[in-house]
Design a protein around this nucleic acid. Sequence first.
DNA 1: TTCTTATACTCCAGAGTCCAAAGCTATAGA
DNA 2: TCTATAGCTTTGGACTCTGGAGTATAAGAA
Lengths: 114, 114
Amino acid sequence: MADTTSSAPACDVEGTCYCPLTGVIDTLSRKYAMQLVSIIGAHDSLRFAEIEEHLPTASTSTISKRLDEFEEAGIVSRTQYNEIPPRVEYALTDDGDEVRTRLEPLLEWATENS
Amino acid sequence: MADTTSSAPACDVEGTCYCPLTGVIDTLSRKYAMQLVSIIGAHDSLRFAEIEEHLPTASTSTISKRLDEFEEAGIVSRTQYNEIPPRVEYALTDDGDEVRTRLEPLLEWATENS
DNA sequence: TTCTTATACTCCAGAGTCCAAAGCTATAGA
DNA sequence: TCTATAGCTTTGGACTCTGGAGTATAAGAA
């Protein structure tokens, strides 16, 4: 507590500030989240087991949790068909597709440099 | 186990596969990681306390851990000046700047839609 | 001389997150 | 009756994140 800047809001970095940045980024800042968005976006729609096949290192429960979070964040839609055995399809929403579009260059670069 | 696809490698999605995708994406898939890359990239170099000011919701130890991980992943460089009191400066490496360039569109979109 | 200040962390215990494996729902077929 | 299928949820143990306190050093104040 030295001078008048003590209670300044901080983060006035040339006009942009990502300080709190809740929402989508928090949702993407979890294990496998970015890969999952990319995988779902590479198809029109996918079933749970298909998603698992595309990301074998992630556990069932983690994929399940990510999908719940995606639905809540509005980037993935879930369509349930009341058949036996049950069938559920996941697809990106329009917002999800926006995220995927912006995510793809990063994932591509990361794949080349890993 | 129905047909010959049972032991297929999976993930042959139109030529690209993000299945394991270790490295940079894992490093970025942690709390505050993307924000930190963006913050550091918005400056030529930053000191620890400045980074803290730009991301007040993250704890000291979490920022410290992220910076260690970034250094290990080769996206951030750490320059230490042996003065009293000590001074340490963080900056993006060339790889870090590549990451930041690809990350920026995503963060901007997320900020607008949060 | 001892106290305070400053910087850049590290250490700690508790809370939260991830994992694999097992269990759950329902129905059709052997 | 037993098995198989799909899409999860539950469990318990390991790993990760959290804020706050503590560490090191030397200049300057009391």
